[in-house]
């Protein structure tokens, strides 16, 4: 009986330890991310890649920790941080006052806006043309919040359909099951570029959002992350990562 219990405990410990260090040294830090959000976080050959991943790996290198990525649904991240299931989250998450009541953020690392994505030939030229159209959003995102604000104002009257991942929403748009998507500009731009002309950015919806690295309240890691982030913005690494994934130089570096 004891042997069995010991074997079980050993197995659990091995599972709990995760995949081991990635050669960066330092402590392992559990990082939550909705890894279906190109170009910020997505999978290539089974590994997480993207703007956020490069950025956080660089932060970890300088702050002395090794990120262990956990692929989760976006709407579960805040709750998971609050319950200390994750140490850090990087998932193109906009810093909002509402979210700041529940979790902490690093200094901003990306300037973002919302956008309206739709087929170019659907006769939709702006948000005002949406009328009764079905609008897809990802659950829990600022895209969802923006869409619901439009609905409250009466600018749009149709159904707002929530998806677990933005990939599901893109898929539904491509299939013609929804009429448009309200989502982060950079991600919808990436989709538009890869959609063979099926979807276009119809309108940029300026919201002046900024992404931040999310942390549980009063995390010891916050100061280290901010210092590393400041260095990365300062020494040109930020611009390098930006060019690699966004395809052009940043207009300005978020402060």
């Amino acid at each position: 009986m004891f042997v069995l219990a010991a074997a079980l405990a050993a197995t659990l410990a091995a599972c709990g330890g995760g995949g081991g260090g990635g050669g960066q040294g330092g402590e392992d830090v559990t990082v939550a991310s909705d890894i279906a959000y190109p170009p910020f976080e997505f999978e290539r050959d089974g590994e997480p890649v993207g703007f956020d991943i490069d950025l956080l790996n660089e932060v970890g290198k300088r702050a002395g920790f090794t990120p262990e990525y956990q692929n989760v649904t976006f709407d579960g991240i805040i709750n998971g941080l609050r319950n200390n299931q994750y140490d850090v989250a990087i998932s193109s998450m906009t810093i909002t006052p509402d979210r700041e009541k529940r979790i902490d953020f690093s200094e901003p690392y990306f300037n973002a806006d919302q956008s309206l994505l739709a087929p170019g030939d659907a006769g939709i030229e702006s948000v005002d043309d949406l009328g009764d159209a079905t609008v897809g959003v990802q659950l829990g995102t600022t895209g969802e919040i923006t869409a619901r604000e439009f609905k409250d104002e009466g600018t749009i009257n149709g159904e707002i359909r929530t998806f677990d991942t933005i990939e599901d929403a893109f898929n539904a748009l491509e299939n013609g099951q929804i009429d448009a998507i309200i989502n982060d500009l950079a991600v919808s731009q990436y989709e538009a570029k890869n959609s063979d002309g099926n979807a276009e950015i119809i309108e940029v919806i300026p919201t002046d959002e900024q992404y931040g690295i999310a942390l549980p309240k009063d995390s010891d890691l916050r100061q280290d992350i901010n210092e590393a982030l400041a260095e990365i913005k300062e020494d040109g690494t930020y611009e390098e990562i930006y060019k690699k994934w966004i395809g052009r130089a940043p207009e300005e570096i978020p402060r």
Partner: peptide
């Protein structure tokens, strides 16, 4: 690897 409980309790 040090032993880690798979569940934490607060």
């Amino acid at each position: 690897m040090p032993f880690e409980w798979p569940v934490e309790f607060d």
